[in-house]
Design a protein around this nucleic acid. Structure first.
Lengths: 204, 204
DNA sequence: TCATCGATACGGTACCGTACCGATACGGCA
DNA sequence: TGCCGTATCGGTACGGTACCGTATCGATGA
């Protein structure tokens, strides 16, 4: 958080004298995200995080103004782009890889999204943080996969199904818990892509 | 439910002498469901429902043991089957109608599902009630639409895309808020069906 | 007549965010 | 290099707020 100072990226924080190491900070972030996954956003408490990380509430409140800021910081620190490395040269195979990767987080990011699903409708800042960290990077990577497929001529640029691929993937990923009572795993996602997404794109 | 009546010679059924009319009960149910949609399940309070319906907490607690039972009762009373009447004789048209109908609830059932999304992972009873009232009737109706299409020979019974139609419909419906910041309306859903679902089924 | 109504008061619990406490380790300076 | 000054540490106590679920009340209507 303080490391986003105006100077270089890895410049040591000169102003703050916090004794909290980056590893310790990550413990806080991991703890709060896990509590969100387990209990839901509303039920997460600063006291709970303090207890599980064996720090004091004071410490948390010294670093972050309130729960929202704390969670936003945790989300931002958790940003990753899981689809980014996928580029096999074949659109169908790229989509299979993406489906597999998506299915593999079900125990993590999907639960997080599930737990934050309603909170983001109430807190714009939280919504923005979630979109920037969990949604947009993955959607962008997925659209990049599709763009390369179009560029290679595997699918026509005006295929209307292209637009809905991200919604299909993330939608199916997320709805399975409600429909079937379990999270969508890699196998399920790959089967879904092969059965529904690829045919709609005119691929096999 | 208030009667433990193990010893009383009186009626076991506890002759419901409640002055609460069915219309009044529906006010309670509507109020609690609307509060869930607006504030989320965790944030709903019996005091809030009592206030907005201008009844007393005592009244609510006389009828229902606690918040969970109250919400479960409200869900059960809200059960409907919105896809049930759809039968145009054409699978493609049936799916368009279903998509339009689905898009039309976005302001209601989808928000409810969104708000309950995490709560159902914690409370099995709530999960079951939600599935029985919001999920299963619609999925069953949708599968019935598909079954008729197969029967008419519009799509082969072994088309693997068949299995994923419900997941796609409800998944896309639900994920749009996260992806695009707005709920999926009827037009969006119809376009999605025409662009992705029908092609995967080999229609059009 | 009397159970149920709405209203309200109650004790209990939980968490917020702040304030205060010694203990400690960082970091500037001799 | 070694020693202090001091900010931050973990722990805890605090007042304030909110809601739970129960109990009690006079009024009401089947």
């Amino acid at each position: 958080m303080a490391s986003q100072a105006a100077d270089g990226p890895d410049t040591v924080v000169a102003s703050r004298r916090s004794k909290i190491t980056p590893e310790r900070e990550r413990e806080f972030f991991d703890a709060v995200l896990e509590q969100i996954r387990e209990c839901g956003y509303d039920a997460v408490t600063m006291e709970g995080v303090a207890a599980t990380t064996r720090c004091s509430k004071s410490t948390l409140y010294r670093q972050w103004k309130n729960k929202t800021q704390f969670v936003v910081a945790a989300l931002r620190a958790n940003r990753r782009a899981r689809f980014a490395g996928i580029d096999t040269g074949s659109l169908a195979e790229d989509l299979r890889r993406a489906a597999r990767a998506a299915g593999e987080w079900s125990g993590k990011d999907t639960r997080l999204l599930q737990a934050l699903g309603h909170a983001i409708t109430q807190d714009p800042e939280l919504k923005r943080a979630l979109r920037e960290t969990l949604v947009e990077p993955e959607v962008a990577a997925l659209r990049e996969i599709l763009r390369r497929g179009v560029e290679r001529g595997e699918v026509r640029a005006d295929n209307p199904a292209l637009e809905y691929v991200p919604a299909q993937m993330f939608g199916v990923l997320r709805i399975r818990l409600v429909l079937d009572g379990e999270y969508a795993g890699p196998d399920y996602m790959v089967r879904f892509v092969e059965a529904a997404v690829l045919p709609a794109l005119g691929l096999d």
